[in-house]
Amino acid sequence: MTLRSWRKVGTPMNTSPKLRPGLWDALVVLVVAALAVSCGWTVWDGQDRGTELTAVVSVDGAETERLPLKEAAGTERTIHAGGYTLRLRLTETEIWVESADCPTQDCVHTGHISRGGQSIVCLPARVIIQLEGGERVDTGVDAVIG
């Protein structure tokens, strides 16, 4: 039997394939390259902004707000959670809880945080304010107990 007969089994092949790259192939290359570049733009642009100091506010484990410090500098935010109210203050380099009506006041006592990886936690309101990006704190340890 010949190969001609078994081509009928599958969808038949157009013709013998072109073996030399042509202009149309260049077009495919261009399309893929354009795709790569545009993907790079959309994906990495966001990532780049992520390396700027950003305060991420989460309530009960769910992220509610992202505040890039550069953009939000000089503003005040109010967070209502768990029946409590926290008032946040932001500058270009720092964020802190100015006042809160929670019983423990731990969040207020934590004071100002200014470096990536630092966080303010308010247990009664179940709020975590964490700084992302920027220069990370290097305490030389991976965790602290106590």
Binding site: H109, T139, G140, D142, A143, V144, I145, G146
Partner: peptide
């Protein structure tokens, strides 16, 4: 893993 033990005299310092 490097795990630090908090100094009881400086509980507020990370």
């Amino acid at each position: 893993w490097r795990v630090g033990v908090q100094d009881p005299k400086r509980p507020d310092e990370a």
